[in-house]
Design a protein around this nucleic acid. Sequence first.
DNA 1: CTAATTTACGCAAACGATACCGGTTCATTT
DNA 2: AAATGAACCGGTATCGTTTGCGTAAATTAG
Lengths: 343, 343
Amino acid sequence: MRFEAITIKDIALALGLSTSTVSRALRDSHEISPETKEKVLSYAKENNYKPNPIALSLKEKRSSSIGVLVSEIANSFFSQAINGIESVAQEKGYNVIIAQSKEYFDREVSSMQFLASRSVDGILFSVSAETSDFTHIQQLYNRGMHMVSFDRTVSFGDIHKVSVDNFKAAYEATTLLINNGFNNIACIANASFLSITMERVEGYKAALKDHSIPIIEENIGFCSHGGLIYEEVEEILNKKMLGIHKPDAILACSDKITTNTMRYCQVHKISIPQEVGLLGFSNLDLTDLLSPSLSVVRQPAYEMGRIAAELLINQIASKRPVTQFNNVVLPAELHQRDSTRKK
Amino acid sequence: MRFEAITIKDIALALGLSTSTVSRALRDSHEISPETKEKVLSYAKENNYKPNPIALSLKEKRSSSIGVLVSEIANSFFSQAINGIESVAQEKGYNVIIAQSKEYFDREVSSMQFLASRSVDGILFSVSAETSDFTHIQQLYNRGMHMVSFDRTVSFGDIHKVSVDNFKAAYEATTLLINNGFNNIACIANASFLSITMERVEGYKAALKDHSIPIIEENIGFCSHGGLIYEEVEEILNKKMLGIHKPDAILACSDKITTNTMRYCQVHKISIPQEVGLLGFSNLDLTDLLSPSLSVVRQPAYEMGRIAAELLINQIASKRPVTQFNNVVLPAELHQRDSTRKK
DNA sequence: CTAATTTACGCAAACGATACCGGTTCATTT
DNA sequence: AAATGAACCGGTATCGTTTGCGTAAATTAG
């Protein structure tokens, strides 16, 4: 037994009408008599008629679904962002179809193609750690796909973007470390070409400069695969912690890097904040329960998801082609806790 | 400019063939000459032809998409499970459409209706904390919707189920607490009628019984809204911790309850494990970095998602109606850490 | 009372792809 | 030489819905 719903044809047959009359009655057309309307409407209600969205999609050339492409779902920042996206989509009657790149460029390309081929009306995306080339995105975009870039945004111009003020967040985080007495601060960031990486590293550098602290390039590390696996972060931290300029504090520039750095310190018995201070970007909601409690930059992930989804759906629903592109920049929150408080 | 893809009709027109010939050529039918096939195939490749999945869905009466209904995406267990589901779906060419109940019965019903009305081919679900009545699920199921129940399973019979051995997990967790010298153990669980709650509480009780420890009903608390918000857990813990039988250990029976219990102890300055031991179900991957490091029951969430998705997709693809229903029960992992080690 | 207009509905095409039912060539068999 | 049968391809209905157009009956205007 297959799952089958009642169709307009069934209603027409049952009531001795044509499908077009039924269709118009359901859409409350003026050229259907009140009595017929009433008959159709009540019959439809009784039999729980729901228009077939697939037939509608074929006809209207739109699917009422949006795709979301992120590097990893099981990541507090992205799952919160998806949460926001889903809430807006639900309100506006859209499906959310999710796909993951797992930080691989190839998987990003194929996932995006997958979404496009599944006729989503638009795509919300945050690029993978391996993505420095945006042609696959731009091609899709130029062919008319509605797209909104969030978090790790793209460099080309005419597209809505939603992110936090990464420069300011990193600047203030670094300043906090400096004000707490740390002066040899390492910065472990994501892949070097990502927007968030460049902005955060710039904020880090600017804070050092404004406090007359020399910028040491060896103090900056990049995780070319997003710090997704522990070993990647370990390798980079080994270079810093066993190097000549052993830092007295670390600024960890993403969720995964932060937790993996914490793990590194535990594994290698490096005490925080005595031996090294730690401040990380993180959206976990129990960073205050960690040992030590962790100073963090928290991004408004849920809000970012909501805004990005609203921009996308508005763009999809807009009659005229959109020419005004927003670059929404939200403030991040800085929470000071024990991991940056020298005894 | 709208996003438009090339269709079979375009190919037919360009090559001076009929749509049916093109269709057959693309599907490698034997009744198309090799030359024609070659022409069609190369033209299709050149112009990046992708069959329109919506048209296919309408014709074949299947959408190649599955729905996932969970209480909350931003929850480590569910995001990992969705991760597993998505990986299988990707392999088999299915979309994953997600919906959240937020632990509300009403939202579960409407979300499930939403998924059904969007013509998903099947639904993977874990019921909300408020769901004691399964008629909305059973109705959909009886109308022929393919469904697989995971984690918080349903009570009716003929349906695939995937879960962990909750009884055993709770039994062993409780036994660990007992063996570590705790003997007045509170159990804070999810809503009382959920499968996972009943099984875990039974496991807890059985362990007490087997160790000749009396079962005190006041030591058992239920979070009727899943412990999603802190205040709910706080209220229940207040009753236990300020009551007559103040427990010396707590078994927290879900992700959210575990972290909120930990938060409670911090807020109320209750030292773990000195004043109270804590062992919780949790799928966070930094419970070892908490203060103190947390003893946990960890569920194979990714694996559960994979298995559930495979069962569902196999059922969808099956020609004959499925009569054999699996009840997959996986083992959970018990990790002993400091939160259960009395000094 | 005729002519014009309105009302209320049906017919059929369209969206993209598939599949059944034919039909037209040739080559092979009796 | 006629019949059979592959081989190859086109026409068309179909999925469920919307919509432009056509048209009969009913109403109104002149």
